[in-house]
Computed example of a mutant assay.
Amino acid sequence: MARLNADQLAAHLQRGLAPLYLIYGDEPLLALEAADAIRAKARQEDYAEREVFTVESGFSWQNLLASGNSLSLFATRRIIEIRIPTGKPGTEGSQALQDYCARLPDDTITVVTCPKLDKQAQATKWFKALEQAGTAIPVYPVERTRLPQWIAVRLAAQKQRADATTLQFLADRVEGNLLAAHQEIQKLGLLFPEGPLLFDQVREAVLDVSRYDVFNLSDAMLAGDAVRLVRIMEGLKGEGVAPTLALWALTQEIRTLAKLKLGQRKGAALPQLFREARVWESRQGLVQRALGRLNEIRLVAGLKQAAALDRMIKGLARGDVWDELLQLGLGIART
């Protein structure tokens, strides 16, 4: 029926409720907030009863179908929540979801939640049935470039504001950890009155709750953000992340870029190349910008550096592994 971004949900709910919502993605805070917003709107519309089905070992899909086919005992309107933590309902579950969508119960709002689903999962019959029966809401981590604005919107909701420098500082401190970011923003609302926030106030109040992973590292390299790349590399090293993982993340991206460059040289269309390389739609802009500034010579040199680093990690060559990892990332980021 429709697909919405999480930030479009509020406007959608003002126009009315859909009969079914599918929330999926790898950002727990945004998924939780989306489900809460739907429940709140449903309560306003007198959906008073709520049933929750969690798909786990031994789950009976017949119980779900029976509930959908039965009338509410205590209220005329109800919410049915179907939680699929693995994102894999199985053969029986797939058919049950299709049957459920074919005969959506009256006076019922259904909310289905799943983790991040890859393109293969989104091509399944059960996913398509859910999407066609209602509204799909994918929730993805907030991109680094959008994080200061995301923070500004949250501050505005509690009638506070901050200048660009302060927002950037906050973004640096909470990157990669939206739930902790949400808690820190709430704390600012408790500590300080409505109105402008001073940089010194925020610096003293906010903890460094940033949490990096190797995917943040590769994103910084693709974005050409050398300063952020250095900060993330230092964070990973300090957290005791194995250098093998950092090398894997960087090498995967460089290898993908090299394949895309080769495909472009042979005349293939970029959308087709993205599909073949399994580049997610949410990352295609980032990858395309990196392709625009990098040439094949630089990418081949990067792969050779990565091979030398692999030998170093295995003890077959001498050198400072983390320093060489940094040089590898900066070599791509600064090109």
Rank of each mutant, 00 (worst) to 15 (best):
Q122A: 02
Q44T: 14
R154W: 06
D107L: 05
I109M: 10
R161G: 08
L294D: 06
K304H: 08
T335D: 11
S57H: 11
V153Q: 11
E81V: 12
V153M: 01
K314W: 09
L328A: 03
F192V: 08
T251I: 03
V209N: 09
Q272T: 06
A226Q: 01
G319P: 03
Q122M: 14
H12R: 13
T91Q: 13
I185S: 10
A220P: 01
G292Y: 05
F199C: 00
V112T: 12
R334K: 12
N69G: 09
T244I: 15
L270P: 01
A31H: 06
G176L: 02
L30W: 01
R15D: 14
R103L: 02
E324K: 12
Q44K: 14
L236H: 04
A249L: 11
R39S: 08
G267R: 14
R173A: 11
Q186C: 12
G90P: 01
K116W: 08
L104T: 10
Q160Y: 13
I185N: 07
F59C: 07
R103W: 00
W126V: 06
N177G: 04
L245M: 15
A301F: 06
A306L: 06
R144C: 01
R203D: 15
M221V: 02
A246D: 07
A164M: 02
E234M: 10
M312A: 11
R103C: 06
L330R: 05
L303R: 09
A307F: 12
L191D: 12
R161A: 06
S218E: 07
G302D: 02
G240T: 11
E204T: 13
G134F: 04
A96F: 09
K88Y: 05
L22Q: 11
V279M: 01
A34P: 00
L257G: 06
A31I: 02
A301D: 15
I79E: 12
L294P: 00
A268G: 01
G319N: 05
D106K: 13
I232M: 05
Q183R: 14
I232L: 07
K119T: 13
K128G: 01
L286W: 07
Y21M: 02
I332C: 01
L207I: 10
E49L: 13
V230F: 04
Q327F: 08
N5P: 00
R231D: 05
A40T: 15
L291N: 10
R283E: 02
I82N: 04
V300Y: 08
L217I: 00
N69F: 00
M221L: 10
